[in-house]
Design a protein around this nucleic acid. Sequence first.
DNA 1: ATCATATTGATTTCGATTATCAATATCACC
DNA 2: GGTGATATTGATAATCGAAATCAATATGAT
Lengths: 149, 149
Amino acid sequence: MRKPAAQQLQDYLAGQGLKSTHQRDEILAVFVSAGRHLSVEELYELMKKEHPRIGYATVYRTMKLFAQAGLAEELRFDDGFTRYEYKASDGHHDHLICTRCGRIIEFENDRIEELQESVAKKNRFLAQSHKLEIYGLCGDCRGKRAKKE
Amino acid sequence: MRKPAAQQLQDYLAGQGLKSTHQRDEILAVFVSAGRHLSVEELYELMKKEHPRIGYATVYRTMKLFAQAGLAEELRFDDGFTRYEYKASDGHHDHLICTRCGRIIEFENDRIEELQESVAKKNRFLAQSHKLEIYGLCGDCRGKRAKKE
DNA sequence: ATCATATTGATTTCGATTATCAATATCACC
DNA sequence: GGTGATATTGATAATCGAAATCAATATGAT
């Protein structure tokens, strides 16, 4: 079972002596319901629709906060800017990224995780985290012929 | 057998109708001999010692050129800036990155590569490239107690 | 309700990278 | 070996996402 996101946020704020604000609640609601892999820019645009007074900086700050609270994970793909994904309680997963349409697909593979662990051990490394990204063409895009560009 | 880097550069330049310059030759020599995983900043500092007249922008431009020529690979780890590694002809490899001292260790694991391919296939993806980074503490750093910070 | 303090929002700053542009170097051709 | 068209260089400004600043405001303990 998963603690509701809103509750998890309140617990974190209380535990850290931080304050509960409308902005934080609203950003969380939009972030969670919007689906995943949102850039700050995208999230800011979504926020503006419902809460036009929200500031750009607040969205940045709040997403960093969510990351620290364990509510969100920071993703940095090759296109330069940071995305956040809502962190469900189920295990770690990695990403397939379509280089044409930008679609992002999640996957998990326990065997790969194990092999990574063994690679770390072999090199006397204590693994803390990892990142596996596979770039390529998604099913929809591989069919299409390359657009003129 | 590997074509010498200098020769590979000349071939690429000729093939593209580009010009061979001292700067490009010198940057390549320093880059190749310096070892691997150099940030542009680091490479620029190395260059200045032997060729103080080199410009910052030239180093940036030239590394991009080397990447296109297949001489270098662009690496973007989580610390924000781009590094380049000399691209040997042997196969793809991935990286273990120490989060304390910054050390970078290369590894390759064919089994992981195969599994990635099968994950791609399972999702109807045509894999073009991938990136696997394992962050953690290297052998030297895991022993040490956390420094006060 | 009061007040110390955390937070917000508008804005500026930062830091890595890229674009601009006049001066210069390269190279194909004579 | 000169000449000229053009690619390249180097100094600098511009860019862009992200982070810092700071006065005004909201929060929550008392």
